[in-house]
């Protein structure tokens, strides 16, 4: 077990393994996202109240889910890096941050586009929207903090603390619609009760979430490889490989 972790933690091995893994995430992700796009836009029935406008859900909900999922991945990786002093874990956290920021941005923008016709406003400062915006700032702050250190080790440790502190925001985002009266509606799927969304609309949503999840896997493989290259640019194994 420990041997395996150390082997994976070694940059050359991880670099090769990630290169082999990437297509196993990338191609299924492309397939599932295309399938879910067709299913969600064409095959799924229109909503009884919102008509076709509800279909933005197929981008909004998976993005919002991934924005929180990515943050937890980033915080856990930062924690592992901090406790076990594994450089690769810090590299993974660094690789995840811009992905998470992009998903958060997408969730906010699609929500805003939907909010204008449905609620009557682009933006409100209710607990759900505000906490999701805070998540975007946490990602951006994490990236800015990393960039402000020249020494990668100090950057790793300082930013890891920020990533861990910020993880408190994730349950707040999720439960914001339960704890406070918000304009944003309560959860339709991520609850113990049965989903409040009809099955023909739910299936493409699940396919899209699976697709986003695999897309994240592909992105992290690619980005982590790039991060390893950047950190190991003077290492001898890279020169030997060429």
């Amino acid at each position: 077990m420990w041997l395996w972790i150390h082997k994976f933690g070694s940059p050359p091995h991880a670099y090769r393994l990630l290169g082999k893994l990437a297509p196993w995430f990338g191609w299924p992700a492309l397939g599932l996202i295309l399938l879910a796009t067709w299913w969600g836009l064409v095959k799924a029935p229109a909503d009884y109240q919102q008509g076709d406008a509800f279909r933005i859900l197929y981008v909004h909900a998976p993005s919002a889910w991934m924005s929180m999922f990515t943050y937890v991945v980033m915080a856990v990786a930062a924690g592992i890096g901090l406790i076990w002093r594994i450089k690769l874990a810090h590299a993974a956290a660094a690789a995840a941050a811009p992905i998470g920021a992009a998903f958060t941005f997408l969730a906010l923008v699609t929500g805003s586009i939907w909010g204008k016709p449905m609620w009557g406003t682009w933006w409100v400062w209710d607990a759900r929207l505000t906490s999701e915006l805070l998540l975007l700032f946490l990602y951006l702050g994490y990236m800015a903090l990393r960039a402000s250190f020249d020494d990668p080790q100090r950057a790793d440790r300082a930013s890891a603390v920020l990533a861990i502190v910020g993880v408190i925001n994730v349950p707040i985002i999720h439960y914001s619609v339960v704890w406070w009266s918000t304009l944003h509606q309560a959860a339709s799927v991520t609850k113990l009760d049965k989903p409040s969304i009809a099955l023909p609309m739910l299936i493409p949503l699940f396919i899209m979430i699976a697709g986003f999840q695999l897309y994240f896997g592909w992105l992290i493989c690619r980005r982590l490889r790039a991060e390893i290259l950047r950190r190991e640019r003077n290492a001898s194994w890279l020169k030997e490989a060429n």
């Binding site: 229109a46 009557g120 609309m201």
Partner: peptide
Amino acid sequence: EEVLAKHDENYMPPEVK
């Protein structure tokens, strides 16, 4: 001064409704 519609968490096709 401002009226916003609050959407609930239910999504369904008109037939089901």
